[in-house]
C-alpha cells in the first residue's frame, strides 16, 4: 500500500533508526498496514481550531522568575560518559 521504501528511509532518517534489508522489508509491510488504519481518519472532515482546546492558562499562572540551586554536575553526569564535567560526544563537524 501507500508506503514505499523511500518514505520509510526518510522516516528512519528523521527517527535516527535504521534497518537491514530484511528488517526493512518487514517494517515496510507493518507500516503499510498501520498507515492503512490511520487513513480511516481521512473520512472525518472537521477542521482543527487551536484556540478552542480550552487548555490555556492565564499569564498570572506562569512561574515566578526565581533562581534556585542547580544539581551537582557529577549527579547529572552519573549516567553518562563524561570528562572534565562535560558529556562526551564523538567529534561534531560544523
Amino acid at each position: 500500500m501507500a508506503v514505499d521504501m523511500k518514505t520509510i528511509e526518510h522516516l528512519c532518517g528523521l527517527s535516527k533508526l535504521s534497518y537491514d534489508e530484511k528488517g526493512m522489508e518487514k517494517v515496510m509491510g507493518e507500516m503499510g498496514d498501520i498507515i492503512d488504519l490511520m487513513d480511516e481518519i481521512k473520512d472525518f472532515d472537521l477542521e482543527y481550531d487551536d484556540t478552542k482546546d480550552g487548555n490555556e492558562i492565564r499569564f498570572s499562572d506562569t512561574r515566578q522568575d526565581v533562581a534556585e540551586g542547580s544539581f551537582a554536575p557529577e549527579k547529572l553526569l552519573a549516567n553518562a560518559e563524561n570528562t572534565d564535567g562535560c558529556y562526551v560526544v564523538p567529534k561534531v563537524v560544523e
Binding site: 522516516l11 533508526l17 477542521e47 482543527y48
Partner: peptide, 30 residues
C-alpha cells in the same frame, strides 16, 4: 517502540502533518 516512532514522525513530517496530525487534533475536539 521503533514502529511508533516511525509512525509519529510520519504524522508530523512535512506534507503529512495536515492530513494526519492536525486531523487527529480536530478529532480530539470532536
Amino acid at each position: 517502540v521503533k514502529r511508533r516512532i516511525l509512525l509519529g514522525n510520519y504524522a508530523l513530517s512535512s506534507g503529512y502533518y495536515d492530513a494526519y496530525y492536525k486531523k487527529a487534533l480536530a478529532l480530539k475536539q470532536e
